[in-house]
Every structure is written in structure tokens, then in C-alpha cells.
Design a protein around this nucleic acid. Structure first.
Length: 812
DNA sequence: AGCACGCCGACT
DNA sequence: GTCGGCGTGCTC
């Protein structure tokens, strides 16, 4: 039997599937972790079995050394998913495996060097012909006769001592041993129980009572309880482990290890079911039928904000559960949707696993294992949860499907929707994509019959959508209003304060930061590593680079012209709150952005505060656009709506529209009617009339025509190639050669593709690496993809790396 | 990446 | 002669 093995954690050059023979006595299957001899030195390395085959074109195959453990980490469906991801997104196998498996399972092979008996002789003998050998032996002796190889190298002060070691092994002075070093694995807890009959133990208690009170207490507790965890036992008896050790030696108590039980979080089951609207009922029926029949179908739910999509999900998950199938529920960012997570947990209790980015490594591993062993019916999580090892997958839900966070920006650079489509197809599951503003790619597929479109046109409480007013900020300036709030927004806020209703102020900060500039000469301080304008932080008075976290003191004098007219421009959420404090001194407000939510759980804290303490105003960035459902919010203000319109990105319009729709949708979710004020410097842009009418379809029709004409997705696929290197020229030249080789292949195979020229990347320097890029528009073609794979291997050198990004969301 | 192999100068 | 430095090329 021949196994397809990928070696974990080496380099792009060795990022291949290697064939190994499985020894007869080893029961190897797909998804197992194995140790294989690799390279000329047959260095034992960790690998994963991706497949089994009968024949191989390679001669002289080596044999698998051993299984790392008996555990099956993934099934064959997952193995084919890994292969697909590798081919489609040009990600190294080991990165994909890292994404599929939880962190902390990786295995390290450690070589331990031991001093053999002859070693003593060597020290005594005077034949010391090598300084290094001498030092090695000395280090070993100091360490008690053995040392790990890495450690030994460090102590000796050499990078590579294999040669020297080999000669020492030959002379029988040292020997080496191979040890497996486990990462995060099953944690065991120690449990104590009686080793003797209880009757006898009671008698022992009386004897011990006189001279060893602590021992007596321990035995007493154990008489009353079958078995007690050691830590608990010591706690109750107020004693130390030595007492238990003595009892164990006497043969009265035994201590053994059991796997740590998972700490169950008790969540109350909230079984109250909401009566569904007709729209919701028919959506559940349509999708439900497909689930019942095990059809592989994709539905696009286009529902206005507040149309009650969550209730539909919950019903469908339940339906799935009743069929004995599992569901996968994906949200853009788990910490942004605490209410939704709470609802799922409330409904399904301990059958839900929540994969949270804030989980500790250990907790994450436990949850993964619970899922892998089939103890879970629903998994809720962000992007990476799409890989959850559910064996009986019946339903995948991708909520807020248009969100950019579904595209991974680091290796493996997958798109969640595409992975979900692949899984749904190979595992016979139903896929639901849902959004108030679907991505154009998805809506286009629905229009073309690839997805089934379900429209939800009404809000559950039958409330109207918020009334949107667009304000021309240029006129405000003309009328002498230099504030960041228009007169209209000021009055609306004042009204809300009077009627004790809550307000959300949204600042569209992406692609725009509060940069520092000199009013006299125009100088802008930039990051010395990344060439990005530094952002000023009032808290602490320093400037910071948002890419590499470079920090520097704020400037008082312009270093270019010595003028003192150096000022901080642009808006931060802090500037907005400052303005609130000035205009409405009695108002209470909260700020929510990356700065205030960097702490663990602070996100939820802020939201709870806003809800419970009835804070008047919440100021925030992108984060507040999602999932918030507060009844008392009746006013939404968008401070500068057009900021994101001026990015050099063909999706800028789509992104801005969706942002506006989402944020405006936060208002008027309860009994009271909602209003929204959108401030812009360019109200002529059609996007504002579509957005104020919440007319997605018209906006889509208008914009998709443009996409077709300009040949942008969904009418083509885009691939972004970026080369980075310490030297600008190296990066550029390497990419140029890469592009030429690719062009040759495209010409030869006569493929339709637009290959643009090599240019300096928009983020031309990040962390002292220079970056060049070129873009290619081409629809998927197997042959070209294969060619790109081989080219990548050839062009991967120490001094340049080429990154491929398929259908990128951001094109830095 | 890591490691072996091979070629070359320095030193017992 | 041999040790060790560095360049090159392969890894089922």
C-alpha cells in the first residue's frame, strides 16, 4: 500500500505530496499523522496522510517509520478539500492543514543526544583533537548525560554539529535518540480514590487521627466520595500533595489519571418559539424541503435589515437536527454578533460548539475534538469554522454573506463561500447565503439560476425601513457651519436626547485615517518601514503606523519647513466624541473602535453597557454596522458617507452601499420609527439615492452593467500576484520573469486572459520589504493553474517570495 | 528549509 | 592526509 503524505512545516520547495510505503504491520489510513524519513539524511519528520494509492511513478519508495498517534485527524472528504484548496488558492499544504486542524496539534521530532559509557573515558583520555567535540562532551556531562540537539547547538555555539556528532557516534562516545514532542494534547487530571475497602479505611482513619491528622482527613473524604480530583482533595483537606504521596506508598490510596472532563457551560435552554411571518414560513419550507431530500442546493436569501433571518436559521438548524444531520453556522466575526450566538446557544444548549477567536489554544482544541468526535450538532463560528470536522453535514449557513471578512487575507487565502460550496457539494449539504446587500457575485449567480433566490421584503414587526435624509456638507460649510455635524443631525440628536431614545453615530474610517500634515508645506509624516501615513492618537500623544505598529512621538514643529502649523487632520471616533461632549454636555456616550475593543470581551462589554445603562449615543466604526439589535435606537447618523467611495477598488461602490444599508438598518428595530441622517460632500452620486430608498436591486442593475462593460467580477476572475523582497529591483525583476513565463504558457495554450503589467504595489513597502504586483483577469483554467504551481516553485528563492491571491477583496 | 555532497584551503 | 568552510542541488 502506498500513502500520499504531505510533510508538515518545511518550505515551498518541499510542499508536495510524497509517496511512502506503508509497512504491513502498520494500519495506516487517511487523516492519520505519521513519521516519515525525509531527504538524503532520512530525517524523521511529521506528515499527514492525504490519500492512499496502489501505484507510484517513483521508484525506491521509503517506508513510513511509525504512526505519531492512533488518532484520525480528518476524513477522506476533508483530504479532498485540502487538495482542492491547494490547487485553487495556491496555498502550501502545511498552511491548509494548520487551518483545518486546531492550533497545537503539531508534533515536533526532537533529537536527544546522550553521553554513552565510553564518554567518561573520552573526558579522561588526553587525545582531545577537536575543540568542538570536547565542548559537546562537556556540555552533555554538565547536563547530566543528555541534551536536546537544538540546546546542544546553542551551548556549543554552532549552527550545525551533525558532522561532528556523526564522528562521535562512530567512536561510541555518544548516541542519539529520537523523541516525539507533543504540542497541545489531551490534558489529564489526577484523581485519587481508596485502594482498600471502605470498612478498613474507616478503621485506618481512627488510627491515623492520633498521629497524622492530615492523612486522616484525606482518607475520610475519600471514604465519603468514590473518587476526587487531586486538586480538589488537597483543597478540601487543606493539605499538600506529600500527604497523599505517603498514603499512596502505604497502599491506602491510589492516584491515577483520567482525561480532563470538558467544562460544560450551562446555558439555559430558551425554548420559546416565535411565530413566523408568512415570508419566513415559506423560506423555511423551501429550504427545508431540500434539506429533507438531502439535495445539494444553494439558496441566496436577500432580506431587508430586520427581516428576521435568524429565526429562519434556527428553524432550519432544528429541522436538520431532527434528521440527525449537523449544521454549520458562519458569521462574519463572532464577537460582533453576541446576540445571535446567544440565541443559538439558548435554543440548542450543549449541542452547540462556538468557535471563538478569543478561545485559548486549549479550549479551541477541546471544542475541535468534541466536533470531530460527533458530539456536536451545530457549530457557530467565523471564517475558519468552515473547516469544522462535521461528518454528517446537512446545512451550511453563511450570514452577511457579502462581508469581506469571509475572504482570508493570509495563507491559506481562501474564500469561505467557495470552500462552503465545495463542502456542500461533496458532502451533500444545503448552502444558505444571506444578506441585505448580497455580494454582486452571489446575486449574479442567483440571477443566472445557479442559486435559488429567496426574497424577504418585510421587516418582522412590519415597521417601515428608516427614513433617510441625505445632507450636503458643502452647503453646511457655505452657511458657516464648521462642525462635523450638520445642523440637521444636531437637531435630530437633540430630539433623541429629549425623548430618551438612543443614537448611533457611524464613522466610515476604512481607507482613511487621521493623518498629520503641515499646513504650510504639506509635509505628511510617514512610517519609515511601510511608507504609510502615520495616524495620530490623542491618547498618549503619539503617532502610529497601522500596518506594522511603528510608534513615534507627535510632532510640534514641521521637520521639513520648521513651521509650527503642523496639524492633525481627519476624523477619528475620538474627535466625534469630543464634539459630542462640547455640543451636548449632558449626553452620555460610548466609543467603539479597534482601540477600545482590543481587550478580550471588551466588545460585548461596550454593547451591554449601551443597552443596559441606556447610554445616549454610541460612536463607532465598521464594527457597529453588524448584528446590533437594540429596540431603543431610533437615530443613525453617518458622519462622512463618501470616505470609502474614493478607494482605488472596483468594489468601492458596492462596499459603500452595503455599509450604508447595514448601518441605516440599525435604526427603528423596535416599536418606534427610525431615522437616518447621511452626511456627504458629494450627494450627486447616485449611490445616495439608491441607499436612501434602500433599493438594492436598482443599485445592482446599474452597477452590474458597468462591471460587465469593464470586465470585472463576476464576469471574470481576478488573480493578484505580489512579489516581495528586501530589494526593490529583485522583487520587480523576479515578477517580470514570472509574468513572462506565464504569458508564454497562456499564448501557447491559447487561453483568453488579460495580464496587466508589473507595477509597484499600492502598499509599496511593508515592514521593509519592497513589493511589486501584477493583476490577471482570467477564468479558471486547470492547465494554467498547474503551470502557476510549477512556476511558483521555480521562482521561490530565498530573497524573493511570490504570493498569489485569487479574487482578492483588498488589493494592497 | 535542511541536509548531504563535493570542492578547496589551512593545519597537524 | 584530514578538518571544516562554503556553494549547489535534491527531497517520495
Amino acid at each position: 500500500m502506498i500513502c500520499e503524505v504531505v510533510i508538515n512545516n518545511i518550505s515551498r520547495h518541499t510542499d508536495n505530496i510524497y509517496h511512502y510505503l506503508a509497512p504491513e504491520n502498520l494500519n495506516v489510513s487517511v487523516g492519520q499523522r505519521v513519521v516519515v524519513p525525509f531527504g538524503r539524511g532520512n530525517k524523521p519528520l511529521e506528515g499527514y496522510v492525504l490519500g492512499i494509492c496502489e501505484e507510484s511513478e517513483y521508484k525506491n519508495l521509503k517506508e513510513i517509520l511509525s504512526l505519531a498517534d492512533g488518532y484520525v485527524y480528518f476524513n477522506e472528504k476533508t483530504a479532498s478539500l485540502i487538495k482542492f484548496l491547494h490547487h485553487r488558492f495556491f496555498s502550501p499544504y502545511c498552511d491548509i492543514i494548520k487551518a483545518v486542524l486546531p492550533r497545537g496539534v503539531s508534533l515536533k521530532m526532537v533529537t536527544v543526544v546522550h553521553l554513552s559509557d565510553n564518554g567518561e573515558d573520552y573526558i579522561k583520555s588526553k587525545i582531545k583533537n577537536s575543540l568542538i567535540k570536547e565542548r559537546i562532551v562537556e556540555t552533555l556531562k554538565e547536563n547530566g548525560g543528555f541534551c536536546e540537539l537544538d540546546e546542544l547547538c546553542k551551548n556549543v555555539g554552532r549552527k550545525n554539529i551533525t558532522q561532528t556528532l556523526k564522528s562521535l557516534v562512530c567512536d561510541n562516545i555518544v548516541y542519539t535518540e529520537l523523541k516525539k514532542e507533543e504540542g497541545q494534547k489531551d490534558k489529564y487530571i489526577k484523581v485519587a480514590s481508596l485502594a482498600i475497602e471502605r470498612e478498613e479505611a474507616y478503621r485506618m482513619c481512627e488510627i491515623l487521627e492520633k498521629r497524622a491528622k492530615a492523612q486522616a482527613r484525606v482518607v475520610e473524604v475519600l471514604c465519603e466520595n468514590e473518587s476526587v480530583s487531586l486538586s480538589e482533595l488537597l483543597d478540601i483537606c487543606e493539605t499538600s500533595k506529600s500527604v497523599v504521596d505517603v498514603l499512596e506508598q502505604k497502599g491506602i490510596v491510589t492516584v491515577f489519571e483520567i482525561p480532563r472532563p470538558f467544562d460544560e457551560e450551562i446555558s439555559e435552554i430558551d425554548d420559546k418559539k416565535v411565530e413566523l411571518t408568512d415570508e419566513q414560513k415559506s423560506a423555511v419550507e423551501t429550504v427545508g424541503k431540500s434539506i429533507d431530500n438531502g439535495e445539494n442546493k444553494t439558496f441566496l436569501i436577500h432580506g431587508v435589515t430586520g427581516s428576521g433571518k435568524t429565526e429562519i436559521y434556527l428553524n432550519l438548524i432544528e429541522r436538520c437536527m431532527n434528521l440527525g444531520k449537523q449544521s454549520l453556522f458562519l458569521v462574519p466575526e463572532i464577537s460582533l454578533t453576541p446576540q445571535m450566538v446567544a440565541q443559538v446557544k439558548g435554543r440548542f444548549g450543549s449541542r452547540v460548539a462556538v468557535i471563538h477567536s478569543m478561545l485559548t489554544v486549549r479550549k479551541r482544541y477541546e471544542e475541535w475534538k468534541r466536533i470531530n468526535e460527533g458530539e456536536v450538532s451545530v457549530v457557530v463560528g467565523a471564517r475558519s469554522a468552515v473547516f469544522s470536522p462535521l461528518a454528517k453535514l446537512g446545512l451550511i449557513i453563511i450570514d452577511e454573506e457579502h462581508e469581506g471578512t469571509y475572504k482570508s487575507e493570509s495563507s491559506p487565502r481562501y474564500h469561505t463561500t467557495e470552500v462552503a460550496r465545495f463542502r456542500a457539494k461533496s458532502e451533500g449539504a444545503v448552502l444558505i447565503l444571506a444578506s441585505a446587500t448580497p455580494s454582486f457575485e452571489s446575486y449574479w449567480r442567483a440571477e443566472n439560476g445557479k442559486y435559488t433566490l429567496i426574497e424577504l421584503k418585510n421587516r418582522v414587526n412590519n415597521r417601515d425601513l428608516p427614513k433617510v435624509t441625505t445632507i450636503d456638507m458643502r452647503k453646511e460649510l457655505e452657511n458657516g457651519n464648521f462642525s462635523i455635524f450638520s445642523e440637521r443631525l444636531k437637531t435630530e440628536i437633540a430630539n433623541n436626547l429629549k425623548s430618551k431614545q438612543q443614537t448611533i453615530l457611524f464613522l466610515n474610517k476604512r481607507g482613511y485615517s487621521s493623518f498629520v500634515s503641515c499646513r504650510k508645506c504639506g509635509y505628511v509624516p510617514k512610517c519609515p518601514n511601510c511608507d504609510i501615513s502615520l495616524t495620530y492618537h490623542k491618547n498618549g500623544g503619539f503617532m502610529v503606523c497601522h500596518y506594522c505598529d511603528y510608534k513615534t512621538e507627535k510632532l510640534d514643529v514641521c521637520p521639513n519647513c520648521q513651521s509650527e502649523q503642523i496639524r492633525f487632520f481627519g476624523l477619528g471616533t475620538q474627535k466625534v466624541t469630543d464634539e459630542i461632549a462640547k455640543l451636548f454636555p449632558s449626553a452620555t456616550y460610548l466609543r467603539m473602535d479597534a482601540d477600545t475593543t482590543s481587550k478580550r470581551f471588551s466588545h460585548e462589554e461596550i454593547l451591554n453597557k449601551f443597552r443596559d445603562e441606556k447610554t445616549d449615543i454610541l460612536v463607532g466604526t465598521q464594527m457597529i454596522t453588524k448584528g446590533l439589535d437594540f429596540e431603543n435606537v431610533t437615530l443613525v447618523g453617518v458622519i462622512a458617507a463618501d470616505l470609502s467611495l474614493y478607494q482605488d477598488d472596483f468594489r468601492a461602490g458596492e462596499k459603500t452601499f452595503s455599509l450604508l444599508t447595514q448601518v441605516v438598518g440599525r435604526a427603528g428595530r423596535g416599536e418606534k420609527e427610525g431615522r437616518a441622517v447621511v452626511q456627504t460632500y458629494y450627494p450627486e452620486n447616485e449611490i445616495f439615492s439608491y441607499a436612501s430608498n434602500q433599493d438594492y436591486v436598482s443599485f445592482y442593475k446599474n452597477e452590474i452593467a458597468l462591471r460587465r462593460q469593464m470586465l470585472y467580477p463576476p464576469f471574470c476572475e481576478m488573480i493578484n500576484f505580489t512579489a516581495s523582497s528586501d530589494s526593490e529591483k529583485t522583487a520587480f525583476d523576479a515578477l517580470l520573469n514570472f509574468r513572462n513565463a506565464l504569458l508564454d504558457e497562456i499564448k501557447e495554450k491559447n487561453i483568453k486572459a488579460d495580464v496587466f503589467g508589473v507595477q509597484s504595489a499600492p502598499m509599496h513597502r511593508i515592514n521593509n520589504k519592497f513589493r511589486s504586483r501584477f493583476i490577471m483577469k482570467m477564468n479558471y483554467n486547470r492547465e494554467i493553474y498547474e503551470r502557476i504551481h510549477t512556476l511558483l516553485k521555480n521562482f521561490y528563492k530565498d530573497n524573493v517570495s511570490i504570493i498569489v491571491d485569487v479574487n482578492p477583496v483588498n488589493m494592497y
